[in-house]
């Protein structure tokens, strides 16, 4: 009797959870439909200027056209590859810098104020200098992507290196481990979660660096399309590029999150 009752309560609980979940999805759907629906409607009714704000249908038409002749894919591919290169290299170089700082406490003390200043500085402001120095090429744009993420990565990862429990180091030292072994056996593996969360932040940051880089110098890419659309006053093109960036940034974020789940599960 009581067992049946328990089962009943459990079923009830599951039903309620499912209901709550459905409600969340429903609202998410409603907001999506409402946003694009109202946008389309207001644009049709000319409550907003279609020349400036375009409309979902016009953006969709443009997308179909550009997807049909294949031109959009080239831009997408270039920006995508630049961003991936930017955030992977930014994270990697940041981790290497953090390692150097951890290795030499003296160096990290000396460099501390400079790192603070570098971190506070808006990195995209270095864009013109990078482009003059490295030339108006993909290298410059990827360098921009690295610039925006590398300092914050260094700081985050170095902080996590320092915060590893000293007693783990004590254990290793009691076995006469050297500094390299301490780093490999304790510091690095203990910091993997931080590195992955940094990777997530860097996905977003690199998009900023890459798009600004493309604003400054490029003949291809989504950043280029935005600037081009702005110059010829084709705001449908600008908005299409923006939507594509939003979609692909979200996809990259999901991929990194998937990697995170996999890595954390194996620990």
């Amino acid at each position: 009797m009581s067992k049946n009752n328990d089962q009943l309560l459990f079923e009830q609980y599951k039903r309620q959870k499912r209901k709550e979940k459905r409600a969340v999805y429903t609202w998410q759907g409603i907001i999506f439909v409402l946003f694009f629906g109202l946008w389309e409607l207001f644009s049709q009714l000319r409550w907003i200027d279609p020349l400036i704000f375009s409309s979902p249908s016009k953006i969709w038409d443009l997308f179909l056209k550009k997807a049909g002749d294949g031109s959009i894919w080239i831009h997408l591919q270039i920006t995508g590859l630049e961003t991936i290169a930017g955030f992977l290299l930014g994270t990697l170089i940041g981790i290497i810098f953090a390692t150097i700082l951890w290795w030499s406490p003296k160096l990290s003390k000396i460099l501390d104020p400079y790192i603070v200043v570098l971190n506070a500085m808006p990195k995209v402001a270095l864009g013109p200098i990078i482009i003059v120095a490295l030339g108006p090429t993909y290298t410059s744009i990827i360098a921009m992507g690295i610039m925006v993420s590398v300092i914050i990565t260094t700081i985050n990862v170095y902080t996590s290196f320092k915060e590893v429990d000293k007693n783990y180091i004590k254990v290793l030292k009691s076995f006469k481990a050297n500094r390299r072994q301490i780093f490999k056996e304790a510091i690095l593996p203990a910091s993997v979660p931080t590195m992955i969360s940094t990777l997530k932040i860097n996905v977003g940051l690199s998009w900023v660096g890459i798009i600004v880089g493309e604003f400054l110098t490029s003949e291809q890419g989504l950043g280029y399309l935005i600037i081009y659309g702005f110059q010829v006053f084709d705001l449908t093109l600008v908005l299409l590029s923006l939507l594509l960036i939003a979609i692909f940034a979200a996809i990259m974020y999901q991929i990194v999150e998937g990697i995170e789940r996999k890595l954390i599960k194996n620990r």
Binding site: N167, K170, E185, P189, A190, R267
Partner: peptide
């Protein structure tokens, strides 16, 4: 041997 085990969780 320390107060806690400090086994490496990974």
């Amino acid at each position: 041997m320390l107060q806690q085990d400090y086994l490496f969780p990974w």
